[in-house]
Amino acid sequence: MVIKNHLKMKKIFIIILTFFLMFFSKEILSQEKKVIIKGKIENCEDYKNISLKEIITGDEIISAPLNKRGKFKIKTEIENGNFYRLCLDEDNYILLILLGGEKVKIKADFMNLFIPEISGSEPTELMYKTFRKIEKFNAKLDSVAYTIENEKKEFIRQTILKNPSSLSNLFFLDNLDINSNLEIFTKLDSSLYEKYPQNLLVQRLHEDLKNTESLAIGSQAPEIKLPNLENKEIALSSLQGKYVLIDFWAAWCAPCRKKNKDLVYIHNKFKNSNFQIYSVSLDQSKETWGKAIKDDNLEDFIHVSDLKYWQSIVTETYKIEAIPFNVFIDKNGKILAKNIEIEELEKMLNEILD
């Protein structure tokens, strides 16, 4: 009798357990897929929303508002084990690897969005830990490469100085920037042009040197006076007293658009320190030009253009053969650098405006 009752109770228990699993299994699986993402992004005042998107498909999972302090909270369900982007826009986002069931906390700065502080997602934490380590290796590689590159350039300079009348030097000039090595180019031109005036490559060097001397480091930047979006002419000379980056770009130029993010960073960092960006567009359409300014958050720059594409007067005045191109001038309008990289510009401004 005891055995029969025991078997009967066991059957009842199995039936109840089966019912429980059938009824609650979907809810349990759903709980495992739920993800909560909370965070704060500094310096993102221009953005009102943040969205979670799948990396592979690009599909938006959910969008959430950002408050004035850059705080947000996302609750959603995701596919187990997938890759996501937490996007302010297509160029500014945080990578996430979500397995389901996480409560993720994020702290980031828009100025350095790709190195956020993240907790609550083990694979994401490991990913960024690895990124940081790789960046250290890359920095070491860059340092070594920079040293070797300088050694190579110095070898070429010394070779030219020892043999200034040799035509062979013309094959190595592409390794040297004419603006930074004006003395060497001048000496080479003087020797070769006197000896081989009919040689086409020598003639080209001679012309390049004449053109460069008008834009040499230390020379006065040529005046620019073009209309802005409201058809009001703004002269470069009107900014005298400020350090100015003259940036030549266009809405149709993909590399230019990519660099605009760095220009916004530099402008925001030094905008209260006697620095301005004078942006000269080679666009043809005012509408396209204006839209790119808005889309790339460039409204605080000074913008001018004659909307003449490559026929713009500035292409001849500044000998522009490709964009993006820039010229950095001091508060008296003297040229300090040409085609300067953003890291070097930041370093110079830190030293100058300190």
Score class of each variant (00 low, 15 high):
residue 224 I to F: 10
residue 212 T to S: 14
residue 250 A to Q: 03
residue 238 S to V: 08
residue 251 A to R: 06
residue 212 T to L: 08
residue 223 E to M: 04
residue 246 I to D: 05
residue 217 I to L: 10
residue 220 Q to F: 02
residue 243 Y to L: 11
residue 236 L to F: 11
residue 252 W to V: 13
residue 242 K to S: 12
residue 225 K to N: 15
residue 227 P to H: 02
residue 251 A to C: 00
residue 238 S to G: 05
residue 247 D to V: 00
residue 252 W to F: 11
residue 225 K to H: 15
residue 231 N to H: 11
residue 248 F to H: 12
residue 235 A to K: 13
residue 248 F to Q: 08
residue 241 G to E: 05
residue 252 W to C: 09
residue 250 A to D: 09
residue 210 K to G: 09
residue 244 V to I: 15
residue 209 L to I: 04
residue 221 A to S: 14
residue 220 Q to Y: 10
residue 210 K to V: 01
residue 255 P to V: 11
residue 228 N to G: 06
residue 234 I to A: 15
residue 231 N to K: 14
residue 229 L to E: 14
residue 224 I to R: 03
residue 235 A to Q: 10
residue 225 K to P: 08
residue 255 P to R: 01
residue 220 Q to N: 00
residue 212 T to E: 13
residue 215 L to W: 07
residue 241 G to Y: 01
residue 240 Q to C: 05
residue 238 S to R: 01
residue 245 L to C: 06
residue 221 A to W: 08
residue 244 V to Y: 11
residue 214 S to V: 13
residue 235 A to P: 03
residue 212 T to F: 03
residue 255 P to G: 02
residue 224 I to S: 10
residue 223 E to Y: 03
residue 210 K to F: 11
residue 212 T to R: 10
residue 224 I to M: 01
residue 234 I to T: 03
residue 211 N to T: 00
residue 230 E to L: 05
residue 233 E to R: 14
residue 246 I to L: 12
residue 216 A to F: 00
residue 212 T to A: 14
residue 225 K to D: 13
residue 251 A to T: 02
residue 237 S to F: 05
residue 228 N to H: 04
residue 221 A to L: 06
residue 240 Q to S: 11
residue 246 I to W: 03
residue 236 L to D: 04
residue 213 E to Q: 13
residue 217 I to A: 08
residue 240 Q to W: 04
residue 233 E to L: 13
residue 239 L to I: 11
residue 240 Q to M: 03
residue 222 P to Y: 03
residue 235 A to I: 07
residue 216 A to N: 05
residue 244 V to R: 06
residue 254 A to T: 07
residue 223 E to F: 01
residue 236 L to I: 04
residue 215 L to Y: 03
residue 246 I to P: 07
residue 214 S to G: 08
residue 223 E to T: 05
residue 248 F to A: 09
residue 229 L to D: 12
residue 228 N to A: 08
residue 255 P to A: 08
residue 211 N to M: 10
residue 248 F to C: 08
residue 253 C to Q: 06
residue 209 L to R: 07
residue 243 Y to W: 14
residue 227 P to M: 04
residue 254 A to P: 11
residue 251 A to S: 15
residue 212 T to Q: 13
residue 220 Q to M: 06
residue 225 K to Y: 14
residue 221 A to D: 03
residue 237 S to K: 07
residue 244 V to T: 07
residue 233 E to S: 15
residue 245 L to I: 00
residue 240 Q to P: 00
residue 225 K to C: 15
residue 248 F to N: 07
residue 238 S to M: 07
residue 226 L to H: 02
residue 219 S to L: 06
residue 227 P to Y: 04
residue 240 Q to L: 13
residue 212 T to P: 02
residue 232 K to S: 15
residue 254 A to K: 12
residue 228 N to F: 13
residue 253 C to G: 03
residue 237 S to A: 07
residue 209 L to M: 00
residue 232 K to N: 15
residue 222 P to K: 02
residue 227 P to D: 05
residue 219 S to R: 10
residue 254 A to S: 09
residue 226 L to E: 01
residue 237 S to E: 10
residue 218 G to D: 04
residue 212 T to H: 13
residue 209 L to T: 04
residue 217 I to E: 07
residue 233 E to H: 15
residue 238 S to C: 08
residue 213 E to K: 15
residue 249 W to H: 07
residue 219 S to P: 05
residue 220 Q to K: 13
residue 213 E to A: 07
residue 214 S to K: 15
residue 237 S to W: 04
residue 236 L to R: 06
residue 239 L to C: 06
